[in-house]
Simulated scan of single mutants.
Amino acid sequence: DPARPGVVLLPGAAGPLGETPGEDGEPEPGSIPVLLAATLATSLPGLLAEAVGDPAVVVAGVCGGSLIPAMAGLLEGRHATTHHLGLDLLDATGVHAVRARVVDDGDLVTGAGVTSGLDLALYLLEREAGPRVAHAVEELFAYERRGTVWRPAGPVPAGF
């Protein structure tokens, strides 16, 4: 329900990367680019547009899931990340692609590859329930978050 405050999480897709087009020059059926593009012909883009338009809803995506709202034209001018093989596509949609494990752009929070999904989930838990709860879950999972969460705040480092 995109009108309900909370978090909408878009997972990635599983399948071949589709780096080698078939004989007809088209991506191979069942490849990740084909699966992600197929979502654009469903009701998902409309539901995501409602969610993205509501500041009480946090839209989160990990890996290829970050590409779906971008390909639907919903993230232009925003900061986001995805799997490193999809950063060019993210950039081509008008998104400011960031090479980071987790990017927090307010009501849009994205994670890079599959394993950064753990970092994304723990970060969202910290945002929603607080650092003590997030730390307790880290201990339960015997997993420690990696990296710094990138935010579009503070001074730009020299030379960038």
Rank of each mutant, 00 (worst) to 15 (best):
P2Q: 03
L9A: 04
A13D: 07
A14N: 11
A14W: 11
G15W: 05
P16E: 08
G22I: 14
E26M: 12
E28I: 14
E28F: 08
V34E: 05
V34S: 00
L36P: 00
A38R: 12
A41Q: 13
L47K: 05
L48Q: 02
P55F: 12
V58G: 03
C63L: 08
G64A: 15
L74C: 07
L75Q: 03
L75E: 03
E76L: 02
H79M: 04
A80K: 01
T81L: 05
T82A: 15
H83A: 08
H83I: 02
L85D: 04
L90A: 01
D91V: 05
A92K: 09
T93V: 09
V95L: 09
V95I: 08
V95C: 02
A97Y: 03
A97M: 05
V98Y: 01
V98M: 05
R101N: 06
V102Q: 00
V103M: 09
G106T: 09
L108I: 15
V109E: 02
V109K: 04
T110L: 04
A112I: 09
G113D: 10
V114N: 02
T115M: 08
T115F: 03
Y123I: 05
P131W: 06
R132G: 13
R132V: 10
H135L: 11
H135P: 00
E139T: 14
A142C: 13
E144M: 12
R146Q: 15
R151N: 07
P152K: 13
P157F: 05
P157H: 06
A158G: 08
F160M: 11
